[in-house]
Simulated assay, not measured.
Amino acid sequence: MKLTTEVSVLPLDWQISHQTEVFTIGSCFAEVLGNQLIDNKFPVLSNPFGTIFNPYSIAKVLTMALDGKYPNEELYTQNSDGIWRHYDFHSSFLGNSQEELADKLLDTLAKVREFLQSTEVLVVTFGTAYVYRYRSNLSLVANCHKTPQSAFVKELLGYEQLQNTWGDLIRRLRTSRKVILTVSPVRHTRDTLSLNQVSKAVLRLLCHRLSEQYKNVSYFPSYEIMMDELRDYRFYKEDLIHPSALAEKLIFQKFSDAYISEESRGTMESWQAVQKMIAHRPFQNQTSSYQTHLQATLEKLNELAEQISVEEEIQNIKEKLGT
Rank of each mutant, 00 (worst) to 15 (best):
K154A: 00
E212G: 11
T323I: 08
F220V: 04
L294T: 03
S211D: 12
M227H: 09
Y130T: 07
T5K: 14
M64S: 10
A142M: 12
Q98D: 01
N196C: 05
L75N: 07
E99D: 04
F126N: 06
F49Q: 06
Q19N: 08
T165S: 04
F126D: 06
Q272S: 12
R133F: 10
M227D: 14
V183P: 05
K60G: 01
K200A: 12
E21M: 03
E73N: 09
Y223F: 15
G266R: 12
Y134G: 05
S194Q: 07
Q307T: 15
T192E: 04
D168T: 11
N285L: 13
C207V: 11
L156K: 00
R187K: 13
E319P: 02
I58P: 04
L62S: 03
E6A: 13
A258D: 12
Q161L: 02
L156W: 00
F49G: 06
S8P: 04
Y259G: 04
L106D: 10
Q163N: 06
F93D: 00
P148M: 01
M268S: 09
G127W: 14
I180E: 11
E263P: 08
I314N: 07
V141Q: 06
N40S: 13
L66C: 00
E120G: 14
T4W: 09
K69A: 14
I317Q: 02
T51I: 15
W271S: 11
D81S: 10
L250F: 12
A142E: 15
I225Y: 02
N35K: 14
E74L: 07
L173E: 07
N285F: 14
D88A: 00
P221L: 05
N96M: 02
E311W: 09
P48W: 04
K60M: 07
W271E: 10
I52S: 06
R204N: 14
D239I: 06
A129H: 14
G26S: 04
S118E: 15
S8M: 14
E313Y: 08
L181C: 08
S256K: 15
L94R: 05
L203R: 09
T20P: 03
S261M: 07
K320V: 00
E319M: 06
N143P: 07
V121P: 10
P55Y: 02
V131A: 15
K200D: 08
L250H: 09
Y290L: 04
S57N: 03
A273G: 05
A142R: 07
T267S: 08
